[in-house]
């Protein structure tokens, strides 16, 4: 029972950390880009970061509405939202790359914001667990 509570706490902590770290990393990468990179690179970082961060929040809302009882949304609405989100992201990335509005490397850095924040959260929790176990 206590182990279950502990796991829930860790998961909730990871989600909160990832949610905040997304915006912080996005802001940090954008500012760093503004200081040291070309305008195309900055636009790439900003657009990529915005795409994945907004995507992450929309995915979170969709999953909470679809899997958390008691008010579960209709499957059709969930599927429509999922495909709409994915299509819009794809079209935006296509326009950005095909129109040469952004530097591909900048876009790649921007798109890595969520992955980086999840990695950071995982490393943080592993470190905490290791230190906690050692202290025990």
């Amino acid at each position: 029972m206590a182990a279950d509570l502990d796991k829930t706490e860790i998961q909730q902590r990871i989600l909160t950390f990832v949610t905040w770290a997304n915006w912080l990393l996005f802001a940090g990468a954008s500012v760093a880009g503004l200081l040291i990179a070309t305008p195309e690179m900055v636009i790439g970082i900003v657009c990529g970061g915005l795409i994945v961060t907004v995507n992450f929040h929309l995915l979170s809302r969709t999953l909470k509405k679809s899997l958390a009882p008691p008010c579960i949304q209709s499957h059709n609405i969930i599927l429509a939202k999922y495909y709409l989100r994915f299509t819009v992201s794809g079209v935006i990335i296509f326009i950005l790359i095909a129109g040469h509005f952004v530097h591909p490397l900048g876009l790649f850095i921007g798109l890595s914001v969520v992955v980086a924040s999840i990695m950071m959260a995982t490393v943080r929790e592993i470190t905490k667990l290791l230190f906690f176990k050692e202290a025990m």
Partner: peptide
């Protein structure tokens, strides 16, 4: 849902990388 959200975000980002 929390664990699924993080997993799906990671998997989806791989597909977006491939698209890019």
């Amino acid at each position: 849902t929390v664990t699924l959200l993080i997993g799906l975000a990671m998997i989806e980002s791989l597909c977006i990388y491939a698209l890019v």
